[in-house]
């Protein structure tokens, strides 16, 4: 290893620490995309309950996949940098959303079965319940999106 003077070391440190590739626009793109993923998943879970067994269910599922794909494409086109730790935070948010989604589906199915047993069959879930379900499902990704946007995700 060649010798290096304290002055050279300071210059190299200054150069290394003076770089700033991760800018606000990149964090905004990834934060918004994560938020959008959460909202789309939450909306799908809520609307899908209303369209259960209806012929529009396939159209809804197709639209859901297309919108998710469009958000992913926009995200990769709009930003050439993935901010530090945003992937990990996004994955944690996604895991939370998936867990909330599975829980919500189980809870809604139990409620439906209870209504049938009580003789109130075919009564759909009230809109406020579906809205709340969508929000709960989306929430982990909304929080993840906010953390990514703020730039202090970990």
């Amino acid at each position: 290893m060649q010798d290096i003077t304290p002055q050279e070391a300071r210059e190299r440190l200054a150069r290394a620490e003076g770089t700033g590739i991760d800018d606000d626009a990149d964090r905004r793109v990834h934060g918004l995309a994560t938020t959008a993923f959460g909202l789309v998943i939450g909306l799908y879970v809520a609307v899908q309950q209303r369209l259960d067994e209806a012929p529009w269910e396939g159209v809804l599922a197709g639209g859901y996949v297309v919108v998710l794909g469009a958000v992913a494409l926009w995200q990769s086109r709009a930003s050439g940098v993935v901010p530090r730790r945003s992937r990990r935070v996004g994955r944690i948010g996604l895991a939370g959303t998936v867990a909330a989604m599975l829980t919500a589906v189980v809870v809604l199915n139990v409620r439906e079965a209870s209504r049938k047993l009580a003789g109130a069959a075919a009564a759909p879930e009230p809109l406020w319940v579906l809205g709340l379900t969508g929000l709960v499902v989306a929430l982990p990704m909304l929080v993840a999106g906010l953390l990514i946007r703020r730039g202090r995700p970990a």
Partner: peptide, 30 residues
């Protein structure tokens, strides 16, 4: 000085690594 990394020590490589250390991933052009 014995703990300086030979590979990273070159100025351009130090700059590349410094840039990549701030992000999860970056495009070549950026």
């Amino acid at each position: 000085r014995h703990r300086l990394d030979e590979v990273i020590h070159a100025p351009v490589r130090l700059s590349i690594v410094a840039v990549l250390a701030q992000v999860d991933e970056a495009e070549f052009a950026r």
